[in-house]
Design a protein around this nucleic acid. Structure first.
Lengths: 100, 100
DNA sequence: CCGAATCCAAAGCGATACTG
DNA sequence: CAGTATCGCTTTGGATTCGG
């Protein structure tokens, strides 16, 4: 992959993961959270923003919505390893600084 | 790693990568770009924002600045595999849609 | 070439109240 | 429980100008 293309492809991922709350949200979804209010409680995100995030995720094919339950699609599940890599990075470079 | 800790660690990474332009910037740095105006030309980012991003990256130990040249630290280099994972995701799910 | 300063428009988001 | 509507503030960042 050349540099230019790499930047373009990264842009697709950051369009999702760059939104505030979304990484946390995808993680919550990957851990079995599926209801609106459950996510709200779990993440502390306000209803307005949560609604906007879920709508965007749905429109981009990251989550499927079925009778008010949200689940990650394959495309969404493919995001999880990235989040885990991020977590590993944070853990490595901030270990013990604020994870209690 | 438990779920709560994972979310906290991810937050560290998103505090950096969630900023507009920063992923592109780190990628440019990893590819040898080191001068202010060079980055400006390469990325299309305006000087004000570029300056802010570099300052933040420097303050967080992601880049080192020596006589007006910027280079990634070890911590910054550890970010690159994540960006590559993002690029792979984008390439997989958006292949042929806009990478020309 | 490097970068700081100023100005300003727009987006983002939190709080809250409300409906089904 | 699952969302939508309104409001107003705060942050972001783009354009531009200027000085080292």
């Amino acid at each position: 992959m050349n540099e230019h293309k790499e930047q373009l492809c990264v842009a697709h991922a950051t369009e999702i993961l760059g939104d505030k709350w979304t990484p946390k949200l995808v993680l919550a979804l990957s851990q079995g959270c599926s209801g609106f209010c459950a996510m709200q409680d779990e993440s502390g995100i306000n209803p307005r923003t949560l609604s906007m995030r879920l709508a965007k995720l749905e429109s981009m094919g990251i989550v499927d919505k079925n009778n008010e339950k949200y689940i990650l699609t394959k495309k969404g599940l493919d995001l999880v390893p990235i989040l885990e890599a991020m977590a590993a990075w944070g853990n490595k470079h901030y270990a013990g600084k604020n994870d209690k």
